[in-house]
Amino acid sequence: MINQDILFLAIITLSLMCLLFLLLLYLTIRKAKEIKKRREIEDYKNKINTQIFSIIAEGKRYRGIGCETSIKQKAMEELLSRYVKILEGEDEKKRLSDLASHCLQGYYRKRLKSKKWSHRMNALYHIEDFYMIKLLDEVVILSKKKNITHQEMIHVLRILATFQYNGFQEVLYYHDLSEYEYRSILMRLNHDLFDQFVLSFHKSTPPLQYAILDVISLKKAIEYRFFTENIFMSYKGEVKLRALKALAEIGYVSNIEPYLQLLYSSSWQERMVAAKLIGSIQEEKGIPRLIELLHDQIWWVRSQAGQSISQFPNGKAILQSVLETSKDTFARDMAWDWLHKGV
């Protein structure tokens, strides 16, 4: 019996070993090919680099730039990716986008239909980077596929947002995203499309509401200050807090009184964001309370109070006097901290 077992095991071990050796053979050949291909790509990149540069920077005509092989396509993709990161001017961006469409459109169209997830993902990254709006239809088609993964969907939505796709709001409503994902998508919308989301704020799910307010705060969108104040007045909890944060970023409110009272709120988050608001508006009436908040039991509130005080023109002097006169070590510590920030 044991002999049979040994035979059996020996066969398994040997065959697995053979299999692994075959795999090794395959992988080394693949690697050698990859290395050769990489060298060819680098060569081609060096060859066309100056030409590409003059096309993008000076608007020269394309001549002799072929993208018929996969090596040339890859080289072109890499060069354009490098340029797209450093370009500033609108004309240059437009020319780069045209060049990308000219050379790579067919390639990405095929890649979007690829069976490999990573191929589709890479295509999506580049379509957005190169602003290849001519592929919009293909991206919309991809968005309607049933077995699309969550990561792909996020990226499709980003692209649709970047391209300011008209039916965007409907597409987005079908999906349940996290706050972070909503935010990064909404950030890309222009004023008109973003307006639609502001208008339907009350119907939105909490993550979407947070994201809308965060985008207002990130963009410091002063045109939404009345909307944000309204939200602050009519909501509670996290939404209220986010609205307050947005107001602090915008740095403008019509009537300061309710916000001064908020400095006495029992929730530390509200005290903290209110302190932030007072600092960014530089409302003198709030200074005495801010000094008190340097003694707050929550570190975040103390820190924010310190920062807010330091934003006033005479802030340094106030902090200095706290440092010299206060008996509370925490308040002194915080005052010291903000006096020495960015040394």
Binding site: W117, S118, H119, Y125, H126
Partner: peptide
């Protein structure tokens, strides 16, 4: 395998 050749820097 799913992430093979994914352009990670982009991600």
């Amino acid at each position: 395998r799913k992430e093979y050749q994914l352009d990670r820097i982009q991600a």
